[in-house]
Amino acid sequence: MELINKSDIQARIDALRNQDLYIHLEMTNGAYAAHFDSNKHPASIVITNTKVRFGHGAISGEGPYRIGLKMELGWIYTEGLTHYEEQDTERLIMAGHDGQGKLVVALQLSKQPF
């Protein structure tokens, strides 16, 4: 994974518009969150291999980055993205890693299921 290049990501988002894609969207603050800090409220989400289609999308912020994808009736939103897989030109694989390198958030789009 490389640090996000904002204009490269925007170009890849634009190239994925208006077609059926599989999404993997994930966020977690870690299963041990409450174990290490009793004030933390452990929470996480995963949606994987669900079909989506967006007509417009944008990356925003100065890093960590935010992405919003506008679908016909709704939105996909992710905050906290730091890294992407530059070599993978078929799929758009992005993630947000915290100071310890742990994955906090992931947003992945692909024409084929993951």
Partner: peptide, 9 residues
């Protein structure tokens, strides 16, 4: 939509 203004066209 709330939170999405920065991404709007």
């Amino acid at each position: 939509h709330d939170k999405m203004i920065e991404f709007e066209e």
